[in-house]
Design a protein around this nucleic acid. Sequence first.
DNA 1: ACAGAAATTGTTATCGGTAACATAAAGAGC
DNA 2: GCTCTTTATGTTACCGATAACAATTTCTGT
Lengths: 328, 328
Amino acid sequence: MRDVARAVGKSTMTVSRALRDDQTVNEQTRAQVKQAAQSMGYVYDSTAQVFRTQKSGFVAVTLPSVNNANFAETFRALSNGLEAAGLQLLLGSTNYRVEKEEQLVRQLLARNPEALILTGGHHTEATRALVQAAGVPVIEIWDLPSTPLGHVVGFSNFDAMTLIVDHLVGQGRRKLAFVGASDGADLRGAARREGVIAAARAHGLPDVTLIDAGPAPVSMRHGRSAIEALGTDVAQFDALVCVSDPVAFGCLSTVQRMGMKVPDDIAVTGFGNFEVARISNPAITTVNVDAQKIGETAVSLLRDVFDGGAETTVCVEMGCSLVAGETS
Amino acid sequence: MRDVARAVGKSTMTVSRALRDDQTVNEQTRAQVKQAAQSMGYVYDSTAQVFRTQKSGFVAVTLPSVNNANFAETFRALSNGLEAAGLQLLLGSTNYRVEKEEQLVRQLLARNPEALILTGGHHTEATRALVQAAGVPVIEIWDLPSTPLGHVVGFSNFDAMTLIVDHLVGQGRRKLAFVGASDGADLRGAARREGVIAAARAHGLPDVTLIDAGPAPVSMRHGRSAIEALGTDVAQFDALVCVSDPVAFGCLSTVQRMGMKVPDDIAVTGFGNFEVARISNPAITTVNVDAQKIGETAVSLLRDVFDGGAETTVCVEMGCSLVAGETS
DNA sequence: ACAGAAATTGTTATCGGTAACATAAAGAGC
DNA sequence: GCTCTTTATGTTACCGATAACAATTTCTGT
């Protein structure tokens, strides 16, 4: 930049201004500078700009898993929405582990993101401290944290399950089993489990049986192996309430293979309204969460933060709705 | 960093060395420094490091779509493998469009990545020029480009389809239909289509009928709507060769709803060996691609590039294998 | 012609690390 | 005891752009 400045007989400051389309520079000067920069093969160093201005143009995002249609959809919405503002997403995947999240947040914060979007509302103490210390706007999504770090766009996984349980009870189902991850790592999954237990209790049902599908993340194959391990014992239940649609599909497919009729012999429900739930045969009863809208809402929240400041922390509660399928 | 240095009574240089695991600092000192940094909530500013060392620590990656189990798996493998080298992934999604890829590459290169990993082997001229000019190591994955930009880790989507067609022909199937995206945007999908057409011709089969599932990306619901649009006409085929497993599942589910028996009345095949193919009922015949290995191979290639230089461009061809399911 | 506003350009310090070199302290060999 | 390594730490000068402020020139209106 110094060389360019020398070539046009101006200071580096003027060159800097000319290249950034700053209004205060003479149009003729700007033209000269651009011409000179071009002909000298000068390449603007955005690294230095990031360093000096302390504006990275990044928004950091953590997701439990990239390979999840719903999270991917939220990510897409975020990406599209923030692109207009010239912001780029820095993605990290926590694998449903808060310790991994902590490590990730450390890495991501080191890049000086202008905002931080965390999926989930449970974090280690160290993570909380890091985020607070960084002084970066935070949005927690896909959950309603008990003690939010900042803004929130989410829903209650616990409450959402009452939709499912009420629906099943309305059909006269009483002996429920919950199929989900065994360890406590997937905290949204755990909230769903507790929601089912509480809702069943509220209806005076017998205790919900917990069927272990292995450590998080659980997917179709874990639904399958959980049911296979159970064998014919599965017949004692009249509904399999699954932590997610992929797990539900695994269960559905497996009980069908065992010769049971769904929904006549047993009901199966999922969560998330994944594509597989709509296309499967029979279609799976599930809960719809508007993943795209979560992303869009987070984007508009961020806009407010960047523009005005909007200093009060906002909590947007998204609605969930039952999608009645053919498995119940 | 100055504060941390003061806290432990050392210079910033020592702190810097301690945090970077430089061998020349005393282990005890390092422990103290790390402890102090931790407790003070100090966050390392890699922006400054990037600036000073002129090394961004980024590897840029483009994927057609994040919401695809196979690409996600490759991404995960890349992410895990490069984490050890202290490299972070910068992800962009092209939505199966080369124009979007161009825009993305421009954005990504502005961050001075140390390498560029592009999914797919077809690019606009401008993209090619950008990449060449940047002088960054490139790896193209998931494809075998006719004119590679640099290293390649992929397979021939065209050739892979002969596995499927040979298998179907071996069962006496002769009237094939290919279900895929109509537009040419998904070039891997188009290569698969051409592969099916060529393989069918080689066997002397009647012309393959092309069933349009809409613009890329196509998924379960597009398989469903394509078959629904066809109605009972679908009965004229004895095999539906689908561009991917999700599409195959959509077709499978829909022909079953129409009362047809799979594989007795019609065969259905997919591509990619997605989880849904294994769990579906019947399990879908497909082609397995080791998405994880593609990522791992790319990582080890990058290691070589960074370490030695390994200047000759390498082309690693991954194998594909038929996974015989119950739909054929 | 001249004060005051507006338009342009310049000066200086700095963002937070780290390379390169300099120095100090501890151990080794005679 | 003294030199020679080895190990551990400190000093200084940056990396390249830009914010904040200062200074200069050019334009107004009277």
